[in-house]
């Protein structure tokens, strides 16, 4: 029950017998979508070498997850994000620990190597990461300004700056994808050596978090386009986006420029 004092029945009895209990089918749909799309699809492709079955599993699971998220968002948006900002803080603690693990491993293995980068590595681009940093920092500023406008009640201005933020995020992902293909073309990939392993997993995990951040914005987009944006939701989405931005500083300083 997200909304307040709607249940003031006169007696206990009225509550325990025949009273309505809240339900939602979407958590159930998403959970089983995850079962098909992740463990089963992955196992069929990589372990049992049946790519066709794997594709069928993805075809079953991914629509379930997407439908589940869409249903959840339309069912719940605007009905209880009051506590989500605080909750996002706890969630970010957990997310940050993923990167703490990665960087701890990276520092440990890198400092144990006699020479760095190990044989087989290629020169990483020097300018592109700077541009990517600028784009991501700019997107943090634009979402902050968008929230400010929403707070002032300027729905139109908010919409524009939110769309600009999403565009900058997509631009970042595009540059990342370009860089990956460029490096793989030069023969540097995830299996080349331990540096390739770290480069592609850490930038890949960061990119996945950018995608999640964009997905949170997209979940709020229909409401925003309809002029019904929830300030609580957007504030929480913005907090996650800033977190993704901060992680990038570690990625760029530790992987590219060290």
């Amino acid at each position: 029950m997200a909304h307040g004092n709607t249940h003031h029945a006169a007696s206990h009895a009225a509550h325990s017998h025949g009273a309505h209990w809240d339900t939602s089918i979407w958590p159930f749909v998403i959970s089983f979508g995850i079962l098909f799309a992740l463990p089963l699809a992955f196992s069929f492709h990589f372990v049992y070498h049946q790519p066709f079955v794997a594709v069928m599993m993805l075809g079953l699971g991914v629509p379930m997850i997407l439908a589940g998220i869409a249903g959840w968002v339309s069912e719940a948006m605007g009905k209880g994000e009051g506590l989500s900002y605080g909750a996002m803080g706890w969630f970010i603690l957990a997310e940050a620990m993923i990167f703490v693990s990665f960087f701890a491993l990276y520092w440990f293995l890198r400092l144990a190597e006699p020479a760095w980068p190990p044989a087989g590595s290629v020169e990483l681009p020097r300018v592109m990461p700077l541009v990517m940093t600028a784009v991501l920092v700019a997107s943090s500023l634009t979402i902050h300004y968008a929230e400010h406008l929403l707070h002032l009640g300027d729905a139109g201005g908010f919409r524009k700056w939110l769309l600009l933020t999403i565009a900058l995020g997509l631009c970042f992902l595009g540059m990342s994808a370009y860089e990956w293909t460029h490096l793989m073309h030069e023969g540097f990939n995830i299996g080349t050596n331990v540096f390739g392993t770290f480069f592609f997993t850490i930038t890949g995990f960061h990119g996945a978090h950018v995608i999640v951040g964009l997905a949170i914005f997209l979940a709020g987009l229909p409401a925003a386009l309809g002029g019904r944006a929830s300030p609580g939701f957007m504030r929480t989405a913005g907090l996650y986006w800033h977190f993704v931005d901060i992680i990038w500083f570690f990625v760029v300083s530790q992987i590219y420029y060290w």
Partner: peptide, 16 residues
């Protein structure tokens, strides 16, 4: 709880 649907998601993920 603060987020009842999230709670339902966690129990069904547990069943998965």
């Amino acid at each position: 709880v603060a987020f009842p649907r999230v709670n339902a998601l966690s129990v069904w993920l547990f069943y998965v």
